[in-house]
Design a binder for these strands. Structure first.
Length: 806
DNA sequence: TATGATATCCTTTTT
DNA sequence: GGATATCATA
């Protein structure tokens, strides 16, 4: 049995599999069979009698976890189901759910994804009256994220001289205070962001010794994939859990560390042996994926990095084709060129799924989409979780979040007036203000308000509307316990009025909204089916019915890649998303200074080295062939800009390259000679040549006029330093007036112009005559519904509509 | 209050 | 170029 498992492994791989006791460091070069070693190691452990419940396997993506589990299942069967396996975030989100009360969070805490977090930070900046010019939510969020990833709490942040000095340097000394307020509000809302899932886990393991002890006992064996991309929080979690047994096995490749920007510490892998002195080290150096040319070319590039673990990657496969290096004039030609090349290869037998186009930034996919479409090549774009970015999906999720955690003010504000219920900004601001004064949630504040007897007519009208909303949420919350997950979701969409709104108002985007909601609900359906199947097979407890809470936590941690369809399509994605994947043919596009390496990275050596590793990762995704391309002109924010070829192109040993121009033109700081006048090319470059062979759409006549050969092109103008706008005193004034109003508003509304009564005849300058149908009292005005004789029924505001009585 | 029009930022990369 | 914030208007 165990001999079967080990079959086909090379000597080092086999050693790494069999020696599963004690700490191990597996340094696994690209394509060296690392996943195979990990899965085989776990399967081997199980075959030796290790209980699956005692294994904790942490991966980088959900997809990697699922694939690994499937592979293990194929080797050892159902027992694989009991292994605790997943991303750090999903495994510890679950662990936190089971123990949340111990650290002051509700069991059904809300997970804020990056946008939620950014929005909250934005409102905090506003509430603190800080300049939005100085404090960009994105930048503040990044800073807070950095702190959390380094396990620096707000208290520690404010006490840290270095951090404060940095903030003062950046002219934003209040970031520490924002951070503190952000944490306070998250806790008040019962919410955690992505970084909290690690930070709070650490707090839990630090402050609840019984919990730590329990999990230390349970997880006798811990395996971590992609260890080079773990951050401080993840590192400490692993250390804490492994303290008793020290059975930690980490797998990684320092040359593929590409997540320093989100706090990953390459040191974690570099110093593993120091952390666990009895570590056994295994080096997997043979690449089974790529041709020799690809591996050697990648080696020649990465040797320009200074800090590396000593290893020598090699391939015993065939030599393979040289890496093609293609220069084009304009970014759109680059896309065409790639599409044509794919078409060519497909004609000679390759499948669409064998191709991937990799780029540095997400925005680059557009041109390729249109080029592929033009040549009717099927493709799919990997993005974050595009489904969850849609507005109505977010609204729907906010409903769910509010139902399971009504104290979450952010969700409350999200949906209290969606669909429109006539609950306006002022009302919401007032409730929020009251909630803050009473140190409680908006939800609770409204509940109290409903009971209080002494309210003016105006206030009663406002409270009634919010009260209806609260009642709606309560009704739904009651339904949740008696209905299945997807039935319940349908009920939420219907009763909230979202469905009606989407069907009633005839906007084209409403159809897509409904499609997206359908998709989400069918995902819920398959989740339910999966749970029930597990129950039938005895892999899930009978009483452990699928809940919307569980589904919600899962969905927040999902990405597109997780709902993989096995279609035969060309893949488009960022280099980052390509990590861990492999394709026969890889196109790395936009090989330009400012793109790869990215503009922001060239200042610091460490960042630049990360970009180089990124390039290394990209190249080593390929099994058979790589094509690199760059354009001389690229559209940036609608404007054409000149670009220079990436410095990394010069770093690849040119004996592995096959360029459509003279390579010598890359070297030296000078610019490349221009298209059309290049003696060597003799014609107008590869694009035109190819285009004339049957694709008339991009003939030279359609190209932009091009300047002569040696004339220096204008360098892009240095970006102007934006002058800070003078503070608008009116705005500041208005703000405080608004606040005062919100605080003490029991005066009668300005009934200016509202001397109408239901049934009266009125005249409007534009709509003509009509009859008043309904009048509603608003905080400072009246809403008048008039049935016009010729224009139908319109809702007007007394303050604005110049109605006259007839 | 709610909507459409106009100004303003922007871009790394992702769990 | 495109999403989003702000503004003017019924």
């Amino acid at each position: 049995m165990s001999e079967d498992i080990l079959q086909g492994l090379n000597d080092v791989q086999r050693e790494a599999v069999v020696n599963y006791e004690g700490p191990s460091l597996i340094i696994a070069g690209a394509g060296s069979g690392k996943t195979r070693v990990l899965t085989t190691r776990i399967a081997y452990m199980l075959s030796q009698g290790v209980a699956p419940q005692s294994i904790l396997a942490l991966t980088f993506t959900n997809k990697a976890a699922r694939e690994m589990r499937e592979r293990i299942e194929r080797m050892v069967g159902d027992r694989a189901r009991y292994i605790r396996m997943g991303t750090f975030h999903s495994v510890f989100a679950r662990l936190l759910r089971e123990n949340a009360e111990k650290i002051g969070f509700p069991q059904s805490y809300t997970i804020y994804e990056s946008n939620d977090a950014k929005n909250l930070i934005k409102t905090i900046i506003k509430d603190m009256n800080l300049s939005e010019e100085r404090y960009k939510p994105q930048a503040v969020a990044a800073r807070i994220s950095m702190a959390k990833n380094s396990l620096i709490t707000p208290g520690a942040y404010i006490a840290n001289a270095t951090l404060l000095a940095e903030d003062r340097e950046m002219k934003s000394p209040e970031i520490g205070a924002i951070y503190a307020e952000y944490c306070r509000r998250c806790k008040q809302n019962g919410a955690m962001d992505f970084d909290d899932l690690l930070l709070q886990t650490n707090i839990l393991l630090r402050d609840a010794p019984d919990v730590l002890e329990r999990y230390q006992q349970q997880f006798r064996y811990i395996l971590v994939d992609e260890y080079q991309d773990t951050n401080m929080g993840q590192y400490i979690i692993v250390r804490r859990l492994a303290l008793q047994h020290s059975n930690v096995c980490v797998v990684g490749d320092d040359a593929q560390s590409i997540y320093a920007f989100r706090g990953a510490k390459i040191e974690n892998i570099l110093s593993f042996q120091r952390d666990y002195p009895t570590t056994k080290v295994y080096k997997l150096e043979q690449n089974y994926r790529s041709t020799q040319t690809i591996v050697e070319a990648a080696n020649s590039l990465i040797k320009h990095n200074s800090r590396r673990l000593d290893k020598r990657c090699f391939s015993a496969a065939e030599l393979g084709k040289k890496i093609r290096l293609v220069r084009v004039l304009e970014d759109s030609y680059e896309a065409t060129e790639v599409a044509l090349d794919i078409k060519d290869k497909a004609r000679s037998g390759a499948e669409w799924r064998d191709f991937a186009i990799l780029y540095r930034t997400n925005k680059q996919h557009g041109l390729f989409e249109s080029a592929l479409t033009r040549l009717s090549i099927p493709y799919r774009v990997y993005k974050g979780m595009s489904l969850l970015e849609h507005k109505d999906i977010r609204k729907f999720l906010a409903y769910i979040a509010l139902i399971i955690n009504p104290n979450d003010n952010e969700s409350f504000k999200h949906v209290v007036n969606y669909p429109p219920r006539g609950i306006g900004e002022t009302t919401v601001a007032r409730i929020e203000q009251l909630a803050r004064e009473q140190q409680t949630s908006m939800w609770h504040t409204v509940e109290r308000l409903l009971d209080s007897p002494e309210l003016s007519t105006v206030e009663r009208a406002v409270v009634r509307k919010v009260g209806d909303f609260v009642r709606l949420i309560k009704e739904l919350a009651a339904l949740r316990v008696e209905m299945g997950v997807s039935d319940f979701a349908n009920e939420v969409i219907a009763r909230s009025g979202m469905l009606q709104m989407l069907e009633l108002e005839k906007k084209p985007e409403n159809d897509t909204s409904k499609d997206y909601l359908d998709q989400l609900i069918s995902m819920m359906g398959s989740y339910e089916d999966e749970c029930h199947r597990e129950m039938e097979e005895g892999l899930r407890e009978e009483r452990d019915v699928p809940t919307i809470e569980e589904w919600m936590q899962n969905i927040m941690l999902q990405t597109d890649q997780d709902n993989e369809d096995d279609d035969n399509r060309v893949t488009l994605m960022t280099v980052h998303s390509a990590k861990g994947l492999e394709y026969d043919y890889i196109y790395i596009v936009g090989m330009e200074e400012g793109l790869l390496p990215s503009k922001r990275s060239v200042e610091s050596l460490a960042d630049l080295e990360e970009e180089r590793r990124l390039m290394y990762v990209a190249i080593t995704r390929a099994k058979k062939e790589v094509m690199l391309s760059f354009a001389e002109l690229r559209r940036v924010w609608g404007k054409m800009e000149n670009s220079l070829p990436s410095r990394f192109l010069k770093e690849i040993d040119e004996k592995y390259l096959d360029a459509n121009f003279r390579l010598s033109e890359l070297s030296g700081r000078g610019r490349m000679s221009s298209f059309g006048l290049d003696d060597d090319c003799g014609d107008e470059g590869i694009v035109t040549r190819r285009m004339q062979g049957g694709y008339g759409s991009a003939r030279s006549s359609e190209r932009p006029a091009f300047r002569g050969g040696n004339e220096p092109r204008p360098r892009p103008r240095p970006e102007l330093v934006s002058t800070p706008q003078p503070l608008d005193p009116r705005r500041a004034g208005m703000r405080s007036v608004g606040m005062r109003q919100a605080g003490s508003d029991s005066t009668t509304p300005t009934s200016a112009g509202c001397n109408y009564a239901v049934g009266e005849r009125v005249e409007h300058p534009k709509f003509g005559r009509g009859t008043v149908e309904r009048i509603e009292v608003l905080a400072t005005d009246h809403k008048v519904v008039v049935a016009f004789d010729n224009y139908g029924s319109k809702t007007l505001l007394a303050k604005f509509a110049k109605l006259t009585k007839v």
